[in-house]
Each structure stands twice: as structure tokens, then as C-alpha cells.
């Protein structure tokens, strides 16, 4: 499989598949394909996601979670787009290497990559304390290539052991499995006495790679 980024405003990923080669993508990303490319449906269950996990996603209200992925099978070209402005990244994962990609940013993965949606954190909506929000991610384990797209520009960091950083929750794009993630809400010191919104941030603890996005 060969993947290339085309365009810079709303990038598309041109995937060239040899005979029998396949790529998995969330549904609705196809821009065009050659007629030779076959299209199949792969349920999360068939990809190894447990039934109990699927029921948990549903119970926790993972509204945007897909219960199947679309599989394109070569030979031929297929082009994928997330319909959002930003940068795309094509990342090879080594065997056993695991990353978590914020939900809604995965563009594609090779079938050799193990896929599993995961709930990273639950936290209060800073604008409505009665509402619970959830940070979902796609957990991906190599070997194989994954493709993702950030909204806006993608900023990469490599955290050393013990090093940490704080980020707004929507800015989170990708983290290595070794990176600890906690979402916390705090009220910053406010000498004016005027009521302000609480600050909800994701705390990221090294070691590992972190990618953030500049748009939401």
C-alpha cells in the first residue's frame, strides 16, 4: 500500500492498493475510487472488538462511534478526505506500538493494525456543569500504517519521563500509549471577583509522543 497526501487546504489521501491489498476507513470518507477497487464492510466485532466493549460504548452514549469500518481492496486507487481543513499525517506503527487518536480524526489503517475505540476521560462540560462530556479515542496497535488528520496545523511533542504538559481538550489529537492522560477542571485565581468559566484541560504525562491540533 502506498499513501500520499494531496492538497494543503483540505488534504485528501491518495491510497494506491496492489491486488489484494486493503485499507480500512471510517464510513463516508471516500472522495473517489477506481471501479476496480472493491468495497466491503467490516464490523468492529470482526476486527476483534469485544461484544461487551460495543455494548459499553452504546451505554455510555458514544454517539459518533461507528460500529463498522469500510474496507477498500485493491488493485487500484482510492482517495479519502475528512472534509475539514488541516494537516494529514501518515504514520507507520512498529509491531506492538500503540497510539491513541482522538475520535473523528482517523482516516485509514492497514488491516494489520489492531483497532479498538477507548474512552480516555469523562469530564464536566465547563459551560454546563450538569452535562458530562467524554473524550473518546481510537486505540491503534501496530504493525502497519495509520493515517490521521488534524484540524488546522499539527504540532508534535516528545515528552520525556516525568515531563508533562497541559492542553485544551479539543486540541488533543494523538498520544503514545505510554502517555498518561487526565482531564481536570479548575477555577483559575480571579482577583476581579467576576464569575468566569472554569478551565477544563487535558494533562499529558510523559514519556511518549504527543500531537496537538491548532483548530477545533
Amino acid at each position: 500500500m502506498k499513501a500520499d497526501t494531496v492538497g494543503t487546504i483540505t488534504p485528501a489521501i491518495l491510497v494506491t492498493l496492489n491486488p489484494g491489498e486493503r485499507i480500512l476507513t471510517p464510513h463516508g470518507l471516500m472522495l473517489y475510487k477506481e471501479p476496480n477497487v472493491k468495497l466491503n464492510r467490516k464490523t468492529l466485532k470482526s476486527l476483534g472488538v469485544g461484544m461487551s466493549d460495543l455494548m459499553a460504548y452504546s451505554a455510555m452514549g458514544a454517539k459518533e462511534e461507528e460500529y463498522f469500518l469500510v474496507e477498500f481492496e485493491g488493485p487500484g486507487n482510492v482517495t479519502l478526505s475528512r472534509d475539514k481543513g488541516g494537516e494529514a499525517r501518515i504514520l507507520p506503527l512498529a509491531p506492538g506500538q500503540t497510539v491513541q487518536v482522538a475520535q473523528g480524526h482517523l482516516v485509514g489503517l492497514e488491516p494489520t493494525v489492531r483497532y479498538s475505540p477507548v474512552l480516555v476521560a469523562r469530564y464536566q462540560n465547563p459551560l454546563n456543569p450538569n452535562e458530562v462530556q467524554m473524550l473518546w479515542a481510537d486505540r491503534l496497535t501496530g504493525p502497519g500504517t495509520i493515517i490521521l488528520q488534524g484540524h488546522g496545523n499539527v504540532l508534535s511533542f516528545n515528552l520525556q519521563p516525568g515531563e508533562s504538559m497541559r492542553t485544551s481538550v479539543p486540541a488533543f489529537l494523538l498520544a503514545s500509549q505510554t502517555v498518561g492522560i487526565q482531564v481536570q477542571t479548575q477555577f483559575p485565581p480571579n482577583p476581579t471577583g467576576i464569575v468566569t468559566r472554569p478551565l477544563t484541560q487535558a494533562y499529558l504525562f510523559g514519556p511518549g509522543t504527543v500531537m496537538l491540533q491548532s483548530g477545533t
Binding site: V6, T10, P11, A12, L31, S81, D83, K84, G85
Partner: peptide, 13 residues
């Protein structure tokens, strides 16, 4: 000529 962003998505956002 193809466009990489669906106009209905662009309008929605």
C-alpha cells in the same frame, strides 16, 4: 475537476 471538501460540509461548519 474534483474538490476535496464537500460544500454541504463546508456550509455546515
Amino acid at each position: 475537476l474534483l474538490q476535496t471538501l464537500d460544500p454541504t460540509q463546508a456550509m455546515a461548519t
